[in-house]
Design a protein around this nucleic acid. Structure first.
Lengths: 131, 131
DNA sequence: ATTGACTTTTACGTAAACGTAAATTAAAAT
DNA sequence: ATTTTAATTTACGTTTACGTAAAAGTCAAT
């Protein structure tokens, strides 16, 4: 397994190194260090970063994202733990589903408006052709 | 047609009056005023507010939302205007579609993880039954 | 070995999106 | 008429999510 440096990840995801360090500050990533203190990121760290950025695109706060990550990340061995994780997961899943519904409605509305605009444009075109 | 006061809208959408005034500060809503200066919101204003809040849930910035609103709001009479509006609209529509795709992928991943957790819980249950 | 690019920590700065408080005025309720 | 509740403007405060700069150490390349 090979590692990524912080600037490699920063470049790949088009974010600043500061941003990555900030996520670490918040306890969302925990890369290993070399003897001299340089951060080394594994594939798993990279995946977590990806998750964070995706969450952000959806408008989740870093706090919410943190919650989700830590839930799905840890070993949930005990029955109670498992049950709670499942419950939380289903709640979050529902939220996501609702957002999808919401977005699809928005999409439809935008499509309708666009159709209307296009119709208007077409009519403009026709009236032009008569002159 | 009847009007809403600022606190009525605030209550309905579970936001503060400050928030609504802030949107006005940014030029996103422009309610009429009574002689004494009280804001009165029409159904249309209410619809705009709804749009803003929905946009926020999707993670759009107020600036982006403002752009969208002003585009779809104004009378776009000229051909050039119409064409530009349609172009912009299609761009935004594409963004929305991408977000939907993205969210659906997230949903699937969450479902898979949840299934896994549920399976584990089930196995725990079975092993219990033998003792 | 030294230059230059990269990394580290520390720390102050900032934009967005409001929160909160104060002072004042208006509307609604008793 | 007078409380109570709601509204207004002005203005400073706060949180989130980083940006930016400084000082110092480290890595990579010539």
């Amino acid at each position: 397994m090979n590692y990524y440096t912080i600037s490699q990840l920063a470049q790949e995801f088009d974010i600043s190194t500061r941003t990555i360090r900030y996520y670490e500050e918040r306890g969302m990533i925990a890369p290993m260090r070399t003897e001299t203190g340089q951060r080394l990121y594994t594939k798993k760290d990279r995946a977590v970063l990806k998750l964070i950025l995706r969450g952000k695109r959806f408008g989740f706060s870093l706090e919410e994202i943190h919650e989700m990550i830590s839930l799905f990340d840890k070993d949930r061995t005990g029955r109670k733990q498992l049950e709670r994780t499942i419950e939380y997961g289903e709640k979050k899943l529902k939220e996501v589903s609702e957002r999808i519904e919401d977005l699809m409605q928005l999409k439809q509305e935008m499509e309708a408006i666009l159709e209307d605009f296009k119709q208007r444009l077409k009519e403009l075109g026709e009236s032009d052709e008569h002159f």
